[in-house]
Design a protein around this nucleic acid. Structure first.
Lengths: 351, 351
DNA sequence: TTGCTTTAGTAATACGTATAACTATGCGCA
DNA sequence: TGCGCATAGTTATACGTATTACTAAAGCAA
């Protein structure tokens, strides 16, 4: 009877029944001080103007009411969201969870959360991601774009939102706060192609996707093939998915003429799709057909897929570190840099 | 020389050089109207008090300045973040990306983004998640908790944040806005155990994890084993990871007495770890040892792992739908419900 | 007593948006 | 001429926090 009436004040955007969370004002009221005092005590480790007694009283009241700072209000006031966005094609591709984990591992201790935005590798969704970032939902972005180029990203950097791109090659330094992390995709693909050739393969096909990192990988493959006097053989499908890989392999198997003895998937999921299709067609791997991939997703090891290892976790961690540094005072002024990490050829049973 | 001076107003939390995004006030100024008029025009489809001429002028100016609504400000004002949180043990476990995708697929059209929070299945991080949610960072949550129970979640529901739990069994309806989605884990495990017994196995071990859904699965397994006059054989390791599965299998292989002829992993990653270890030990699957899993993660199909299919995408989608409905006006009043989806036994080559 | 310093705070304001409440102008009509 | 009403907006306020600038009271020295 006594306490029930006071405690239903707002009922605004929320439902009527939901009691609002206590605010600094509530604490101030209960502790007999001003809201400003509460804010000071809650945020500063040392408050010369608030004596220990008042300080503890405020803290106790805050504790008692179960106070939690209102994140939106903080964001508004401080123009900081304490959130990183991770813009990727598809979280379902096993390459990305590892990247996300790397990101989180560095971001969390620095106080940042990670928001995932899937683009499906489609241009319009990539554009939507930019739009969405311009609403101030994140302080920084780690992104893989298949379609957008630097000019479209510049708008973010110019508004003070640092971007770290997950790239497939070195990018020249630029004046804006756009950095990149990458492994040398062309060289990695070249090395894998050399391995295949060294193993005696002459007819080597590459399954690639239309957009994305596939392009640099195809370049490395094509160069080495031509250098070796062999002709590149590209099968292109739409996405980085098992279905695409399977479809591409079907097309290879349907060929009338001589079939390739080795297939290089521009990504592990493509290679896996191809692998399954080959097996279902009664081919043995690597005897009838060798298969190589790119990324070294966790299953690759289980399936014995020979592939190029990209250190996803480290790439994510490095990207996060870069963002954290960018968001330090003055961090936006330094020119955009491109960080290279090393790939590794993982030789397994599929080649 | 002329335009450069005006355009550096705030330089607050941001770096000095970063030009701030245009606000409604800027539009109002440029269009010669009040900020309120701008807000009206931008938000309402029909504005009786603003004539078409002014309306288009405002819209044009907004367009021209590249205006994007400030998300934090909106959040503060409307007490809505338009974000769902997805609290899970580990995005790296292949079960979860599919769930996230299901979530996103329903959330995005309804205007909600998805934020990922990994707990690593640790109690203190689960508690941190609650804390974090109480800051008003999300309007609703889809969560898998290994440790927290209903009472700890009640605080969220009471503050108007609906929760959908990813459960392993039916939960009784409660008064709060805490729903759950689940497949009957005990029954699914029971059915898988029956299958193993039907295939002639008598010595069947289960690899389980200490916390999480493993418990219900163990229950189903144990019940069927005892019903069949067989004794359950549990190997417990810490996490749902391949390493844990591999370790457990090693322990099984080290046994002096008779080894089990079948191993049931409480999750696919556990089963996969076990599978690899068994293969490395020279055992052939399923002849020397049969292996079954739980979840039906994408690789399970590739590796021929017999497992229990959980419809992760549908679970995610259903969870999101539930949240969206909860966030409709009055949606928080209805009692918490438990939604069951159907599992499926995927018979493959590993059993 | 005056003036200065320290103590212990408070008041005011701004962040950008949404919205309820209000108002000034002009027109038609009695 | 005066009244009511539609038109075309405006003003004011609130959301919760952080921060700057201010102040009242006490204590102390000169």
């Amino acid at each position: 009877m006594t306490t029930s009436t006071t405690r239903t004040k707002r009922g605004k955007g929320r439902d009527k029944a939901a009691p609002s969370r206590p605010t600094q004002k509530d604490i101030a009221l209960a502790a007999g001080v001003s809201q400003a005092a509460v804010s000071l005590v809650l945020n500063k480790a040392e408050t010369p103007s608030v004596p220990p007694a008042t300080r503890t009283r405020i803290l106790e009241v805050a504790q008692g009411l179960g106070y939690r700072p209102n994140h939106p209000a903080r964001m508004l006031r401080s123009a900081r969201t304490m959130t990183f966005a991770c813009v990727i094609p598809d979280i379902t591709n096993p390459f990305y969870p590892g990247l996300v984990r790397g990101l989180q591992t560095v971001a969390a201790p620095a106080g940042y959360d990670v928001l995932i935005f899937d683009t499906d590798g489609r241009p319009e969704r990539e554009a939507r991601a930019i739009d969405w970032l311009l609403q101030g939902r994140a302080d920084g972005v780690v992104a893989t774009f298949f379609h957008l180029r630097a000019p479209q990203l510049a708008v973010l950097a110019r508004k003070g939102i640092p971007v770290v791109r997950l790239e497939s090659q070195h990018k020249p330094d630029g004046p804006l706060a756009i950095d990149s992390v990458y492994i040398d995709n062309a060289e990695a693909a070249a090395e894998m192609t050399r391995l295949l050739i060294a193993r005696g393969h002459r007819r080597i096909a590459m399954i690639q996707a239309e957009f994305g990192p596939s392009q640099r990988r195809a370049l490395g493959y094509g160069t080495v093939m031509r250098e070796a006097g062999l002709s590149p053989d590209f099968i292109t499908d739409s996405a980085y998915s098992e279905e695409s890989g399977a479809r591409a392999m079907e097309r290879l198997l349907e060929r009338k003429g001589e079939r390739p003895t080795a297939v290089f998937g521009a990504s592990d999921v493509l290679a896996l799709g191809a692998m399954v299709t080959a097996r279902n067609a009664g081919l043995s791997i690597p005897d009838d057909i060798a298969i190589a991939g790119f990324d070294d997703i966790p299953v690759a090891k289980l399936l014995g897929l020979t592939t190029v290892r990209q250190p996803e976790f480290d790439l994510g961690a490095l990207a996060a570190e870069t963002l954290v540094r960018r968001l330090l005072p003055g961090g936006l002024e330094t020119p955009g840099r491109s960080h290279e990490l090393k790939f590794e050829i993982m030789k397994r049973s599929s080649v």
